[in-house]
């Protein structure tokens, strides 16, 4: 594992901690898209079907369990916790995420490395992760005002994707048989979605102002 991959995993972890912190500390999930969070649950469950069949490392196994567990905990809080669910901005979170699930699954049936149960679900999870942030980004755009922790959450998620791209570039030059076009192309698409957000994030950071997205 190289430093970029590790930095990517850590920023991913930090993003989840920031989100949990926001929900637990403020007992509020305002500005957070439940649809994006539900998509992440599906992403992790579909991708980590290999938890019991392929062992890579203790690190990988622990991280997989953490990602599955934390994403389930977040959705549980937003749906079941009495105080938290009252703060959910349902009317701003109207993205039709079922189409993303359906589209990703059809794409996985067409484009995959091997026509096996696990490989189809792996490709599905990669495609779905690429678009899973869209309901959240649309929600941020709609509300315009982004609170601090929500902004940090999306920032760390984007940083995670950027580090993964550096990781692939590094692996491409250091490993003799590195080719994984499904993950890399989807990763590029996914990172591109963050470009707009990053632009406004850095402007607000530079001006030391509150993050605001144009309507």
């Amino acid at each position: 594992m190289n430093i970029f991959r590790f930095a990517g995993d850590m920023t991913h972890l930090i993003s989840i901690v920031v989100l949990l912190l926001k929900i637990y500390a403020t007992k509020s999930c305002s500005g957070i898209s439940l649809k994006t969070q539900e998509l992440y649950v599906i992403v992790f469950l579909a991708r980590y079907l290999d938890l019991f069949t392929d062992f890579i490392s203790v690190y990988n196994t622990v991280m997989k369990l953490v990602f599955i567990g934390s994403s389930l905990a977040i959705v549980w809080c937003m749906r079941m916790h009495r105080a938290v669910k009252r703060t959910y901005d349902k009317e701003l979170d109207t993205f039709r995420h079922y189409f993303l699930v359906l589209g990703s699954f059809v794409l996985a049936l067409l484009l995959h490395e091997k026509f096996t149960f696990q490989e189809i679900f792996w490709a599905f999870s990669i495609y779905l992760e690429a678009v899973a942030i869209l309901p959240q980004l649309v929600m941020l755009q709609r509300s315009g005002n982004v609170d601090n922790l929500t902004g940090q959450y999306v920032f760390f998620l984007g940083a995670y994707r950027a580090f993964y791209i550096l990781n692939w570039i590094y692996r491409f030059f250091t490993e003799p048989h590195f080719s994984r076009w499904i993950a890399c192309l989807s990763g590029l698409v996914q990172t591109a979605f963050y470009a707009d957000f990053f632009y406004y994030y850095f402007i607000s950071w530079k001006n030391n102002a509150k993050l605001q997205l144009p309507a």
Partner: peptide, 10 residues
């Protein structure tokens, strides 16, 4: 590269 290692990322 073995199959298991093909998905060594998270």
């Amino acid at each position: 590269q073995s199959e298991a290692q093909a998905h060594d990322e998270l």
